[in-house]
Nucleic acid binder design. Structure first.
Lengths: 238, 238
DNA sequence: TCAACGCATAATGTATGCAATCTAATCCAA
DNA sequence: TTGGATTAGATTGCATACATTATGCGTTGA
């Protein structure tokens, strides 16, 4: 196997920060973008040649990514791209549901800052505008994806807990990493989830922590259900 | 500041595995044991001198521990022992409550292996024996702590999710790291929590996931409550 | 007196060479 | 032919030297 991968990204090496962290970012993006096969070995020398640095910052980056759960490390045998089975993805959604529920509850109990509220209200407004346009173009779907991230990000922020934020990021990160499961969401699903957002925000504004948690948990669980549904469809071709 | 710390543990360096991982373990233990002050800087050179290795494995260990949340890393400025406020500990219990609830639900849904059931039944039996002896000696309390860990560990195992286990370990790890909050549990608290264990196990055996989750969540939350109570007592000396 | 600059020291970041370990192919013997 | 041992190549682990960056103190100027 020679130069099987495109280029990853040799650019950000000169961006001021240390090589170690910029390489960590580059490799993280590359892995999440599916530029490495699941289970593939991450050879220190080939990476160092491709990125034009020595093995040292590569090793630091690999260790960091292993800490994030993107790689597995076996002493004396190197790092491997971690494979996530469908069941792993489902588990990640269950964890995310539990944690997002907690974040929503805390947001309701602690109250939201004006900044976080502004982000959410913009997300609700912009999402509404997109969905009212009728059929969603691929570009619209991508746009809605960002709006969705902004909504959840604001609630994570409102949870006011670094540990919670870190764990949420980890549980969110693994789903896109398995390129196999690009869920083609039905338009109705998107509409329904957008409506969920209104209710969740309402519950948070009313300081109803229990309701906010319940709604958020079910909101995230519904994504898990969609995933399972699309997989069973895939197995049963019509 | 010269040799302020005892010895940490220079022993396990020759235990077969790589220096990097054994040093990671040593430092983790030392940090959890409170042998470093919160906020204290972890200097690579002094650690390498104390442990008689070069900076390289030290740096690997520090990066790994930063990934676990025990250290903070600022590029070009080194690693610091992460400080956990009382609020951080409370948040960790809330996260743990959510995740342990999920683990209990999954254990109920998936069923428990005979090994896990055996561990739990031993924990219930041994705990009962200790509690029936009357007043708890410090040694008994430590023993009960291990029994408690065994109980929860079996349920984590029954959850059958690596990501869930990893996150649970992280959320459990930080509480003991803040030596300030050694909660002096009332004996009644211990009794009550042991009874909780029976009910939780019963719910799991009945495959009642919702009930197992509810009970487990409240079980862990009650520890948070005890912590908050003991702190408010501390602030209001009678 | 105080602020700002510059230098000296120390600590982290990176590169490289060597040692230890793993992997796989080859060879020998049963 | 097959099974196991052996050896060569490749890869990771570790140590060390050098480069870069931070930090503290002293000096200088207004």
């Amino acid at each position: 196997m020679t130069s099987q991968h495109p280029q990853i990204a040799a650019g950000p090496l000169t961006e001021g920060i240390t090589r170690s962290v910029s390489i960590t970012d580059s490799l993280r993006c590359a892995i999440l973008a599916g530029e490495f096969q699941p289970g593939e070995r991450m050879l220190e020398v080939s990476l160092s040649e491709r990125l034009h640095v020595s093995r040292t910052p590569i090793r630091e980056a690999l260790k960091a990514l292993a800490g994030e759960g993107l790689l597995d490390h076996i002493p004396n045998r190197g790092y491997y791209v971690r494979e996530y089975s469908v069941d792993d993805i489902v588990q990640a959604y269950e964890i995310r549901a539990a944690l997002e529920g907690l974040a929503a509850r805390r947001a309701a109990q602690l109250g939201m800052s004006t900044e976080d509220r502004a982000v959410i209200e913009a997300a609700l407004r912009d999402g509404e505008a997109i969905l009212n346009k009728g059929e969603l173009s691929p570009h619209d779907r991508m746009l809605y994806g960002e709006i969705n991230s902004a909504f959840h990000g604001a609630i994570h922020s409102a949870g006011q807990s670094r540990m919670l934020r870190d764990m949420l990021r980890q549980s969110q990160q693994i789903a896109p990493s398995s390129h196999r499961n690009v869920i083609a969401f039905e338009q109705l699903d998107v509409r329904r989830r957008h409506d969920d957002h209104f209710r969740i925000y309402e519950a948070i504004l009313c300081r109803d922590g229990a309701r906010a948690e319940l709604l958020m948990r079910d909101h995230v669980e519904s994504v898990k259900i969609s995933l399972l549904r699309s997989i069973s469809r895939e197995l049963l071709p019509d």
